[in-house]
Structures are given as structure tokens and as C-alpha cells.
Write a protein that binds this DNA or RNA. Structure first.
Lengths: 214, 214
DNA sequence: GTCTATACAGGGATAGAC
DNA sequence: GTCTATCCCTGTATAGAC
């Protein structure tokens, strides 16, 4: 209550006290690593250097804490997503840029991804599913935008469904992220730890197709 | 102990008593729907129509039960995966068949998929991760086989990495599965509930590419 | 805002009778 | 193989002092 708050309703980004921020940070790490049920308030409190009761003081309940973590994560992710789109280039260049940036983003934020993917997996329509949906939906829509634009300019075949093409690229990236441990010890797979090579290969196939005749 | 057992070591498929099978079945449903931690032995016992103690009698511990479920699931999945490959056709036909069968398989077994995907998400190298890895790895390898064969016959461009092409298709299918709730209320996406249309679109892009010139 | 202490429920697991 | 009863621990959450 000591510091000046601009608008306590809208963008409550860092509107947390120091203690609360510590809790949020510890909780994010633990939730990302082990999931909701496997993490105890005790563990969060310990990692944050505060008491159990303090956690409840700030976030009301475990659910409340979890939602706060999810909100915080999505909030931080939003601005970064905008860097995925590069304006003023031709279609192949834009696709290439998106592919590289997207896969790099996923691999650089494993905690965030795990958090969101877990939510997607709960079809029980529980907790902050809307948040996860919003996050995934947003860069998906972004990629569709690039594709549509390419189609409008005639650089891209008119008959292809931009949404399906987008699913191919985004899906392949999420697949790399999720299946990495599997891919690592699978013979004939050389890209498990070479994301640039991976996205280059993806873009090449997407642009030119698999068939030999052309 | 009443019935004759052929070989109690190898293929212990239905080597369970009736009670044990009921437990296994109830557990599979619950684990698939809510994940390991969220399911109590109490709930499993109730759904199976037995007592808590009985669950421990048959499976030793909660972990043991979970592993038994995972094993059972993978065991049932294995033979079905073989139908994904169709012999004696040209490359486009085989790819088309795989794509359709694969996406249909995923959507027809949501419980199994959720179970396996959850395991993949736990990088803590815990529980039956090897099982999940084996399952995903297997049909991935299967698809690579199709692609390599096409390459050998010269139907497929020699420079493309078959593993990357496989990741595109498998990833896109897994993406449809996971992101379905999101995709449903996303404007511009018409395939969320039209898997055939989806896989046709995928195959078309994979074969011919996105570019207009050709 | 932060703590200590405590209430209370539910979880996994075991003992021992049938 | 199946049950009832029980143990013990841990988890969430609250009360109330500082």
C-alpha cells in the first residue's frame, strides 16, 4: 500500500509486492516442471523463502496462485510473439523468418510451453484453459495472416487452405518440442538438436513439396 | 489360480483376474481423463466396484497400477499401428493412406493419446516414459520407411530429409488432436471436425508444395 | 505483510479376518 | 481374492499475534 499504483484494474503486471513476486516466480518454475497437483504450497513457500500462510495471504488459494502464474506467463509471452512476423518481404522470406523464430521461441521457453500444453491436455474445461487457448491461437492466426497475404499476391497456390498450411508448420514445431527426448535416440533423425536445420528443412518441403517432377 | 496359464512371463495381456481387469479398466479411464496425481486409489476402487485394499493387492502401489495401465494401453495399440502402412502402391497413394489412417487413429483413441502425451511432457525421466517414447517412435519410424522407399524409387526429391517430412505429417496430426478445442472457435479454420478434409489438405501441400509456379 | 500454530480432510499403504 | 478397519503423513486452508 506504500507505492503509487496507476490503475489497479487493467495491466497488473508487476503490481505485486516483492514477496508476492518471489512466490510467483517460484511457483512458475515448480508448476512448469511438475504440474499442478504434484506441487505443494509448502514447496512453493520454501523456494520463495516465505511461509505457507503468506502464499495464501497473497493468492487466496492454490488455484488462485496457479491462475496468477498462467496469467503472468501469457502476459510476458504476448509481446515476444509479435517479433515472429517480419514485414515488407516476399512470401518465402517471411515464412522462413517465422519458422526460424517460432522454433527458437519454443525451445527457449520450455517452462512456458509445458505449462500451456498441460492446460491444452485437460479437456475438462477447467482452470485457465482460455488463457492457453488464446496463446496458441494467437500465433497460429499470425501465421495464417502471412499465408493469406502470400496468396493475395499470387505467390502461393490459391487452392491451399492457409489454415492447414499453418497447422503443418506450427504442428511440426510443437512436435519437435514435445518429442525431443524420443527423437534424440531414434536412428535416422539428425535434427533433434539442430533447430535451424530443422526449420530450413520444413520450409523447403512446404515451399517446394516432396515430389520429384516439380 | 484356477485357469490354465500358458506362459506367465511374456505376453501377460489378459493374464489378470476379473477383478484386476475391472480395476485396470477403471484406472485407465480415470488416468487418461485427469492424470496421475489427480486420481485417487479411492476413486479407482469405487469405479471398479472393489475396495481400496484390493487395488493394492493386485498392483502393489499406485505407481504399479499406473505402469500396468500404460503397458496395457501400448500393448493394445501396437497391432493397430501396423495397419497404417499399405504395401504395393506408389508413393502418393501410400502417403495418402497413412495420413488418413493416422489422423483417424488419433481421434479414435483420445484416452490413449492423452496418456502418452502426458508422459512425453514429463521430462523428469520418471515413470514409464520409455513406453510412451516407444509408441510415438514406432509410427514415426514407420512413416520414415514409406518416405525412404519413395526416395529410393525416385518418386521423391532426393534432397529432402525423410525424418523432417515425417515430422511435418505426424506433428500436424498431433497438433489437430491437441489444439482441437482452440481450433474450433477460431475463425478461418474449417477442419477442426473434418479430419478427412484435413489430411487431404496436408497431403496435397506435402506433395506439391505451397508455391504457385510449380 | 509476515510469521507460528493449528484445524481438518484426504491420500497411500498395511494388518488381519474371511 | 476380497473385505473392514486403521495408521500415518501430507496437503490445503484459517486464526490470530507481531
Amino acid at each position: 500500500m506504500n507505492e503509487v499504483k496507476e490503475k489497479p484494474g487493467a495491466a497488473e503486471v508487476d503490481a505485486y509486492s516483492e514477496g508476492a513476486r518471489n512466490i510467483l516466480q517460484a511457483a512458475e518454475q515448480l508448476f512448469a516442471g511438475q504440474g499442478f497437483d504434484a506441487v505443494s504450497i509448502q514447496a512453493v513457500a520454501q523456494n520463495a523463502g516465505v511461509s505457507k500462510a503468506n502464499v495464501f495471504h497473497h493468492f487466496g488459494s492454490k488455484e488462485g496462485l496457479y491462475l496468477a502464474v498462467l496469467r503472468s506467463v501469457c502476459q510476458r509471452a504476448a509481446p515476444l510473439l509479435q517479433t515472429l512476423v517480419k514485414e515488407g518481404e516476399d512470401f518465402p522470406a517471411r515464412l522462413d523468418h517465422f519458422a526460424k523464430a517460432h522454433v527458437a521461441y519454443l525451445l527457449a521457453h520450455p517452462g512456458t510451453m509445458r505449462l500451456l500444453l498441460r492446460e491444452l491436455l485437460e479437456s475438462d474445461a477447467r482452470r485457465g484453459q482460455e488463457l492457453a487457448e488464446q496463446a496458441v491461437g494467437e500465433n497460429f492466426t499470425r501465421l495464417i495472416g502471412i499465408l493469406r497475404e502470400g496468396q493475395r499476391r499470387g505467390e502461393l497456390r490459391a487452392v491451399v487452405d492457409p489454415a492447414i498450411a499453418a497447422a503443418l508448420l506450427v504442428g511440426a514445431d510443437m512436435f519437435l518440442f514435445q518429442a525431443r527426448p524420443v527423437l534424440r535416440h531414434l536412428k535416422g533423425v539428425g535434427f533433434a538438436d539442430a533447430p535451424e536445420r530443422y526449420s530450413e528443412g520444413l520450409v523447403d518441403i512446404l515451399l517446394h513439396g516432396l515430389l520429384a517432377q516439380g
